[in-house]
Write a protein that binds this DNA or RNA. Structure first.
Lengths: 267, 267
DNA sequence: TCGAGAATCACTCGGTTAATCACAAAACAG
DNA sequence: CTGTTTTGTGATTAACCGAGTGATTCTCGA
């Protein structure tokens, strides 16, 4: 059995969550021992015995393990559900504190407003998805969206699409029939189409090894284009704002040539 | 105005969330600048100018800032709501991964079951609260709960109390009339009382500067007692399991003397 | 009382981060 | 076009923190 990979995975994630290596190792060690002494833990987790105590103390302070003050001391991990819930609580509290602190502060000097020709770059799947959904929520006239990968059609995206105002046209393109079907059932109000942009496919990728992930055009004045690096699966996006923006102009031209299959705005 | 404290708070929390000092400083700097160059940021945040670029790159990769690739480069922070949402997503994903990995692994050797005389120590408000709620959910006969501090009566606790099975007696004690009233309206099924344990009050604290936070007795065989260090507000608890447990025995004796005002189980 | 294991403390080593410097490239003024 | 300033990158040094190890004190059972 490959339980070992899971062990390493757990240790790694715990470190990402802020634990030190010894602490992480001790916690997963206890998770499978259910109850153990420093000696047992040390043997199982390869943590020097003398350091087990420090690690456990930290874990105890975080509410992840319990200590029995006998001799020898006994340790045991909190049940998994409790542990994850506790971690979650911790995090929520932190994010909340951050929000409050920054809200109190965001009052700043509104300096000059730079040129309108702005193209911003951002990356990270979650961040791009959040931005996408936000933008859709702010649309007042039209949303054109092309989805380049099935995994991008998340419940949150569906919610955002279904939540647009009444007068907003929804044009959603997909690359495959099956994805188009999915969209049609999930977002009944949307006009769907199969994208004419064959270059969205990874198979047709040119020299640069990237595939288009999303293409979003809001009210013909804001655009977001994301690409996905096939190797790392990382998503990165560029984001243009303003009617006169170069990117936006290009997008409009694409539409005019029928590539995005938009209908002309009526008289 | 004391906006400075908020700045520091934000920086500190961001570091707890895994960012380095420079990254945190740059992010809060951008949060109040809304858009700025490396130079501006450097002056405002005391981050060496030449290091701003690295920090920003990391932030960009995490989806917290956007970069405009002009010269000079312009940076701007993602809107606060998006940022917190992104951080939340990140964290949720991690906790999820942890849960999955540990679930695959928790199959372990069920060693010997030690003595029944077990007293475990744990600390951390969230962890203790989670344990409290779990224990209440597992009660089959009786729940005796004394709440020593108003702030401990959380919505989750109320849910747990209202969610117990039908045959379970609920006895909830408070220290003040007002708290008792709160409990009565929030948990109609509970029999409430004013605790006769005056020593729960912080005012009456003895030499050791601690006040009792919660006292929980489940089915007369499991007990949890928590105390709150007045200085640090940290909560710590001891937790005893098993009918023959010394702690539990003490608790039952307290009840027999009427201090916990339990009714005797009928014939 | 004594010895063996248990627990704590004090220290070294190595890697990471904070901080500074040197330099190349780009923008800008004249 | 040229020299100067600003911007961006890379290399280098210094301070810090965590991983690993040994010495010391404590606890328990014989």
């Amino acid at each position: 059995m490959d339980t070992n990979a899971n062990l390493e995975e757990a240790i790694e994630v715990l470190q990402q969550l802020g634990l030190k290596e010894y602490e992480a190792r001790c916690f997963v060690g206890l998770s499978r021992l259910h109850t153990g002494t420093a000696k047992q833990l040390s043997e199982m987790t390869e943590v020097p015995r003398t350091r087990v105590y420090d690690a456990i103390r930290v874990l105890e302070a975080q509410g992840l393990v319990e200590i029995q003050h006998s001799s020898p001391q006994q340790f045991r991990a909190v049940p998994l559900e409790e542990a994850t819930e506790t971690l979650r609580d911790q995090y929520e509290a932190r994010v909340e504190r951050l929000r409050d602190a920054l809200e109190m502060v965001e009052i700043v000097d509104p300096d000059d407003e730079g040129p309108v020709q702005q193209v911003w770059a951002m990356s990270g799947r979650d961040a791009i998805e959040n931005r996408t959904n936000d933008l859709i929520g702010e649309a007042t006239d039209e949303v054109v969206l092309v989805i380049g990968d099935d995994s991008l059609l998340t419940p949150e995206l569906v919610d955002a699409l279904n939540g647009v105002g009444n007068g907003v046209d929804l044009l959603v393109g997909a690359l495959t029939d099956s994805l188009q079907d999915e969209i049609e059932t999930a977002v009944p109000d949307a006009t769907t189409f199969i994208s004419g942009l064959e270059w969205l496919h990874g198979e047709n990728a040119t020299v640069d090894d990237t595939a288009i992930g999303r293409l979003l055009l809001i009210d013909r004045s804001t655009i977001l284009v994301s690409s996905i690096i096939p190797d790392t699966k990382k998503e990165q996006a560029i984001f243009g704002d303003g009617f006169g923006n170069g990117l936006v102009v290009i997008a409009r031209r694409l539409m005019a040539q029928g590539l995005l299959l938009a209908h002309d705005p009526g008289p």
